[in-house]
Design a binder for these strands. Structure first.
Lengths: 203, 203
DNA sequence: AAACTTAATGAACAGTGTTCAGTAAATCAA
DNA sequence: TTGATTTACTGAACACTGTTCATTAAGTTT
């Protein structure tokens, strides 16, 4: 009989319900306001129930982090059609920045906030991040094979590129871009990105 | 009579005592563990007393943030002896990274954590950050006058440079550098910095 | 000595993450 | 169908958190 199956399905549904509520509150009111009690209230369960489906608060945010990586992967997927590796690399940078600006909460969870990283054991750590970085390294490697970045190691180049994109993203997300003059502030990420691409072009 | 003077001195001393305790706990056990009660316990005062000297928890961290900027300013001070602006710019980058790696807690407070920024009113916001960025823009401007970064706006260049350094710093501080291969991880910031300087050189 | 000022307290409030004994419903075995 | 067992869920309790405020005690002034 399918009782067990139904039970497992219901269990999975509640797990998903918790995650949706957590995401909604997190996106609406921020990390601090996303408490176990607030999540429980919203789905009309008691706080204790949350712990039947998630080890602790951190692991809820870890699940949301993975959701963020899934979304980023999906968006990166369309870049497969770009044949030229350097063009693909540039499109990746643009898309990465776009993702960060449009999904600052996800970005924060994926690349800034410490909480979802506490969940990771010493062994299997941050697989999603590793995979994403590998994709970047591979593209850079292809660029190298086509004659770009002469005399530079692919992983090193990938790291510098990632750092610059990540720096722009986090300065913006964490409110440190007030230092930019008014007329440029709105578009500084795009301007900065273009400048950086020019630097990549001439190396 | 100097009673009033003494009183004010004592008041200032307690303010300083609170800040020292807050800094120690923050550096030892991190942001989450730095509670008002823990601070009060350490200096053997009641929690209420803290609020006679600081508006709230955020403003304690704001005071620590300013301390961080003071330290960074001091370290940057020695670079005044470097006459050539491009050499000074490169030294600034090195020093900025060194500061971030040696004082990750201060760096976090200055450039990542949101809390000390909540204190800022809409008007006078993040003066220390603004001043620091201006210093960078000025050095870049000098470089431009010497023929560097042809056709590029100084503020834009400064932003890209800052983003890259900030990106490297935060990836490291927030534990996102596990993706780098073992043999490079230890020195990736230096390797990355050198690669970036080469990019600056050929633009 | 009395009046006033100031500094410090610590209990109280409303919140937090997390645990766990207890309950009630659903399922299984006889 | 009844009794035993498993399962899902509850909500009170614990030890915390930031913050406020009436009360107390000490110091200063008149």
């Amino acid at each position: 009989m399918g009782t067990k199956d139904r039970k497992e399905r219901e269990k999975e549904e509640l797990r998903e319900l918790i995650l949706r509520a957590a995401k909604d509150i997190f996106f609406e009111k921020g990390y601090a306001q996303t408490s176990i009690r607030n999540i429980a209230d919203r789905i009309e369960y008691s706080p204790g129930t949350i712990y039947l489906h998630y080890k602790d608060k951190d692991s809820i945010f870890h699940a949301l982090q993975q959701e963020g990586f899934k979304l980023l992967r999906q968006q990166f997927g369309v870049l497969q059609v770009v044949a030229d590796p350097f063009e693909r690399l540039k499109a990746m940078g643009r898309l990465y920045l776009k993702f960060a600006m449009e999904n600052p909460e996800y970005y924060d969870l994926m690349f800034v906030i410490r909480a979802p990283m506490n969940v990771l054991e010493e062994e299997a750590c941050w697989d999603e991040g590793q995979t994403a970085f590998n994709v970047l390294v591979n593209v850079v490697q292809e660029c190298v094979q086509q004659g770009h970045f002469k005399g530079h190691d692919a992983e090193e180049m990938a790291y510098v590129i990632w750092s610059t994109m990540h720096g722009m993203a986090t300065l913006s997300i964490r409110g440190r871009c007030r230092v930019i003059s008014d007329e440029k502030r709105e578009t500084i990420e795009i301007l900065g990105y273009e400048t950086f691409v020019q630097m990549l072009n001439c190396i």
